[in-house]
């Protein structure tokens, strides 16, 4: 069955992140000059303005910073998922990532809840990092 939902459109800044996802790892940019872990990806460090950067692997563990429960499908391809949870997860290394919380009743999701990454392979070349309550 073909995947009907939107797919990422990797750009120069975001391609390493999505390449990492394909290998089931969350990679985040780290400034080579000051060590700041940054997300969203960018060509210049927002702390020190250095351009030299490297991509480092995260553990996949984190906590829910905030979350919302969609009761309306803005894109019809999400209608079957309603109600679904979109969250900002703070990774244990510091940066935040936008994701879905799955394998959990939306009513049971709460801020600061411990979560872990799982992977959803949606096409041959795209895997999405989703999160579920930590085991």
């Amino acid at each position: 069955m073909t995947y009907s939902k939107p797919l990422p459109v990797p750009g120069a800044d975001t391609k390493p992140f999505w390449d990492g996802c394909r290998e089931h790892t969350i990679r985040i940019q780290r400034c080579k000059a000051c060590g700041h872990l940054r997300r969203p990806p960018a060509s210049v460090c927002p702390r020190c303005l250095a351009r030299e950067t490297e991509w480092v692997e995260m553990s996949g563990r984190g906590t829910v910073y905030s979350y919302v429960v969609y009761h309306v499908a803005y894109d019809p391809s999400f209608k079957e998922d309603l109600p679904y949870v979109v969250a900002l997860v703070t990774l244990e290394e510091g940066p935040r990532i936008l994701t879905n919380i799955v394998e959990c009743d939306p009513a049971a999701v709460h801020c600061d809840m411990a979560v872990e990454a799982i992977w959803k392979d949606v096409t041959d070349t795209v895997s999405l990092p989703l999160f579920r309550p930590a085991s």
């Binding site: 919302v68 803005y74 979109v86």
Partner: peptide, 26 residues
């Protein structure tokens, strides 16, 4: 405006402000 956020079904302004509001509730 959604960009790659659309991959997770995240669209529009309401949900962005709702994320802020939910954290404020916490």
């Amino acid at each position: 405006m959604a960009g790659d956020d659309a991959v997770f079904g995240h669209f529009g302004a309401a949900a962005g402000y709702a994320l802020a509001a939910r954290r404020a509730m916490h």
